[in-house]
């Protein structure tokens, strides 16, 4: 007869914990609503959204390409170039970093590994826009600042993903090279590298997908790419142009996601 009693107790505790959680949630939302200084929605909201919508269905087709280098296609290519450079640079830097981090995990260098992990977390916590603003101060406005910002931001992500995949990799083929008399560099070249490479490429592509999205907003702060004409068109209320740029970004991101997803599926 003791068992049902315990169940009863457990049940009651469960019910109490539900009530406690419910109260916590209600307090959080109550706080959000009561304390939130809601701004008024501007009266022109209706007309502006109508204009944007009209702009979207009557986009400024002439802007797509006009050879000036300021047109949609050139700016989208610039955006892709920023994302591409940022990702490649980050990937190249992250590889040795990740190998070092995962090697030191089980050794006396454990402290370095912890410091490294903390640094990567810190880098990831910085929104790329903040990095872009800082790099604009360092190298002046333009795409270069964008490349640097995305590069650093991607190191935070790729460093983590790379070192995790190295820690989880299957080491069995390394033993056979060691057993045949291979030196450490040979073990790396013949076994570790070919085994880990597909995972590294897959993560790099994934990071590129994210970087393309980020690159499309860098221009909002002056770090190059499609964001710059976008903010200009918004400020001058040039809705047909906003429409075509929006359209361009959506198509670009979807195409890149599609291609990258296809390659990643083939790699596995």
């Amino acid at each position: 007869m003791t068992i049902p009693k315990i169940n009863e107790k457990q049940k009651r505790r469960d019910r109490y914990s539900w009530i406690v959680w419910g109260i916590i949630i209600i307090v959080i939302y109550g706080w959000c609503f009561s304390d939130m200084k809601f701004s008024h929605i501007q009266e022109s909201a209706g007309t502006v959204s109508k204009s944007i919508f009209m702009g979207l269905i009557h986009p400024d087709w002439a802007y797509i390409y006009n050879g000036s280098g300021e047109d949609l296609v050139s700016q989208l290519i610039m955006t892709l170039a920023i994302a591409f450079l940022g990702t490649i640079i980050a990937a190249i830097i992250s590889v040795p970093f990740a190998f070092f981090a995962s090697r030191s995990k089980n050794s006396k260098y454990n402290v370095t590994s912890k410091v490294g992990t903390f640094l990567l977390t810190a880098i990831r916590a910085f929104p790329e826009i903040v990095l872009a603003i800082m790099f604009i101060k360092a190298v002046g406005p333009g795409s270069f600042a964008g490349v640097m910002a995305l590069g650093i931001h991607s190191i935070g992500m790729l460093g983590k993903l790379f070192s995790e995949s190295i820690e989880e990799m299957n080491h069995s083929s390394e033993y056979s090279i060691v057993a045949a008399g291979g030196s450490k560099p040979q073990v790396f070249a013949l076994s570790t590298w070919p085994t880990i490479l597909p995972a590294l490429i897959s993560y790099t592509l994934y990071s590129f997908e994210i970087s393309v999205r980020s690159a499309s907003i860098l221009g909002l702060v002056g770090a190059g790419g499609i964001g710059a004409p976008m903010i200009m068109a918004l400020n001058t209320r040039n809705w047909p142009r906003v429409g075509i740029i929006l359209f361009g970004i959506v198509v670009m991101v979807m195409v890149i996601d599609g291609c990258s997803g296809y390659i990643r599926k083939k790699l596995v």
């Binding site: 939130m36 200084k37 809601f38 701004s39 008024h40 929605i41 501007q42 909201a45 502006v48 959204s49 944007i52 826009i129 999205r213 980020s214 499309s216 907003i217 909002l220 964001g227 976008m230 903010i231 918004l234 209320r237 906003v242 929006l246 970004i249 959506v250 991101v253 979807m254 996601d257």
Partner: peptide, 26 residues
């Protein structure tokens, strides 16, 4: 849904600010 996910939040905010005005509601 795919289309929704192509737009980064900052870009979305820039457009919505033009519509709804400046402030936390946007």
């Amino acid at each position: 849904l795919d289309i929704f996910r192509t737009l980064p939040s900052l870009l979305l905010a820039a457009i919505l600010v033009a519509i709804f005005g400046i402030g936390p509601t946007t």
